[in-house]
Design a protein around this nucleic acid. Sequence first.
DNA 1: TTGACTTTTATAATGATTACAAAAATGTAG
DNA 2: CTACATTTTTGTAATCATTATAAAAGTCAA
Lengths: 134, 134
Amino acid sequence: MRDAKRILEEKDISPSLQRVIILKYLQEHPNHPTVEDVYHDLIDDIPTLSKTTIYNTLKLFTQKGIVYQLAVPGNEAHYDYSEGYHAHLLCEECGGIFDIESDISLNIENDLEGHLILGIEVIYRGICRNCRKE
Amino acid sequence: MRDAKRILEEKDISPSLQRVIILKYLQEHPNHPTVEDVYHDLIDDIPTLSKTTIYNTLKLFTQKGIVYQLAVPGNEAHYDYSEGYHAHLLCEECGGIFDIESDISLNIENDLEGHLILGIEVIYRGICRNCRKE
DNA sequence: TTGACTTTTATAATGATTACAAAAATGTAG
DNA sequence: CTACATTTTTGTAATCATTATAAAAGTCAA
């Protein structure tokens, strides 16, 4: 796992206590946490932590391309820090989000119908293996 | 364009005035309208129309698989009725959503790592051709 | 140590969506 | 046609995530 402080410095973000802790949290919790998740899990470590800080920090990280906001319609935003590319499965039963080792070596052309393409996101919708058993 | 009333009946939805008009609107406006868009454009035709009705109706349509909610993180939900599959480009400059004629004949296997796959959504992020010119 | 600047924090405001209960519309049995 | 049950729509209030704002705290250099 890459050093959080170094990642921030490379992106010209001053590595404040809160920012480093939030980034470390995202690195250690690749389960697509929400702002609420981050807050709930860190408030014991930093009792002064404010939700606004988490919002601000995650917005900053997103703009800098360190994390990205997962598109889940109609709900809170989920955040994903990950070094390798992967797709996601959205379970329609339990609402869970699962990583999919997508082999879609998507023909990401820079130019697609005149648009400049910077990234791609693949979302599968279905029933996850856990809900399927029931 | 398929008959709206028939589509509803096939899905066991009683074709009330509002439902038919909302579905027709979605058919005729494939530009991924929001609830606000639908309301704004239909309130002149049906002065009694309530936003709640649009929310309820679109939720119903989504559950029945007639339309689907487009995943745009951090904003209102956009709705899409379309007969053929296509991907979407999200412009990071203007926020616009563009259809992409995706040739991804994605290997939609029913089973992917144990999950049951029902659908797939591909979202490109980038700069649209209009913003690019500037 | 002072002052400028950045970061964090708490509170209030906004905006989308949902809950709820009443009103209107529709369907059905007598 | 009428009375009653059910469905659908509507308006209002409530909820929930997110953003705006301004004060407080922290950082850093002269």
